[in-house]
């Protein structure tokens, strides 16, 4: 599988602030890649670098096989970019904006435009200035989807939107997922969990991990062990066991490298005979919380 986006040690400094640090990222073609992380993690900076809106301090990036610094003009006939930070031309009417954009894209699909306008309930004769924030995002998305882009880049598209609008946007997006690679940034895990195929976690400008979301879900498990007798936790524990706790004979931890054969063997090696062992799959939110806690533990220890 070839990569729609690939970065190599991509770094961006704003004076002394390191907004993005040695980002090595690979987004496979046809993936729905979610770049998540807290506010200020460097997600928007990363996207602006990919879209050649700002220049990198060092490192390189390729988008659809092009050097990202060469992305301009006609390159955007293949990329649909939507950001909450964009200054959409507010003097235009909805219909005029779409009509105006049509001529720039050889692949513009008028029936698709009409269907998106209908789906998003966009009023063609209303000035963009008079639209709500949610409506503006829907318009931006409609204009970004109507030309069948190979790559759809969305920077925090759902921020502050009500659930109904958010669902409409996601629905519109997923209908295009088959023909496009979707790269989306968000700080809200819940909203991307339902449709992302890949996920990358960015924190303080560094990519903590990047992988297929099903693989991520498969390797994280909440483990609960009931021992024959209570007592202190043995030390050291395997490094992949996070937040170990014990309460009498019950031990709980998060296994970050779960394997159906290896994990039970390790439990047996550490605890010997046990009464009961259970492995519960985790949601994305729980996985990220566990990772955040792990980080706090490391920081406290240091």
């Amino acid at each position: 599988m070839t990569a729609a986006i690939q970065t190599h040690a991509l770094t961006k400094h704003f004076r002394k602030v390191r907004a993005l640090d040695q980002l090595n990222l690979e987004v496979p073609e046809s993936a729905v890649y979610a770049l998540v992380g807290p506010n200020g993690a460097g997600k928007t900076t990363g996207i602006k670098l990919l879209m050649n809106l700002i220049g990198a301090t060092s490192g390189t990036a390729e988008v659809l096989g092009m050097d990202s610094t060469q992305i301009r003009g006609k390159s955007y006939t293949q990329i649909g970019y939507v950001s909450e930070n964009q200054d959409i031309p507010e003097w235009m009417k909805v219909g005029f904006l779409l009509e105006y954009l049509r001529d720039f894209y050889p692949t513009w699909d008028r029936p698709l435009e009409d269907s998106l306008v209908k789906q998003f309930e966009l009023p063609r004769d209303r000035k963009i200035k008079a639209l709500s924030r949610g409506m503006k995002m829907k318009l931006a998305l409609a204009s970004a989807l109507s030309f069948h882009p190979k790559l759809i880049v969305l920077d925090e598209p759902f921020g502050g939107l009500d659930p109904l609008v958010r669902d409409q946007l996601i629905e519109g997006l997923l209908e295009r997922a088959e023909e496009s690679t979707i790269f989306i940034s968000s700080h809200d895990l819940a909203e991307i969990e339902s449709f992302a195929s890949h996920i990358g976690y960015l924190e303080e400008g560094r990519l903590r991990f990047s992988e297929d979301i099903s693989a991520l879900a498969a390797r994280f498990r909440e483990v609960e062990i009931t021992l024959n007798t209570g007592g202190q936790l043995p030390s050291p524990l395997p490094p992949s066991w996070r937040q170990p706790q014990n309460s009498g004979p019950v031990v709980r931890f998060v296994e970050s490298q779960f394997d159906t054969e290896r994990t039970p063997q390790e439990i047996q090696r550490v605890f010997g005979e046990t009464k009961e062992v259970s492995f519960r799959p985790m949601g994305l939110r729980a996985i990220f919380l566990s990772m955040a806690k792990k980080k706090e533990e490391v920081q406290e220890a240091s």
């Binding site: 390159s75 930070n85 964009q86 954009l101």
Partner: peptide
């Protein structure tokens, strides 16, 4: 300035205009 060239928030910059 209808198509502003300063800053990184411009709408038109990510549209297929040739300079």
């Amino acid at each position: 300035q209808g198509e502003p060239l300063v800053g990184d928030r411009q709408w038109w910059v990510t549209k297929p205009y040739e300079w």
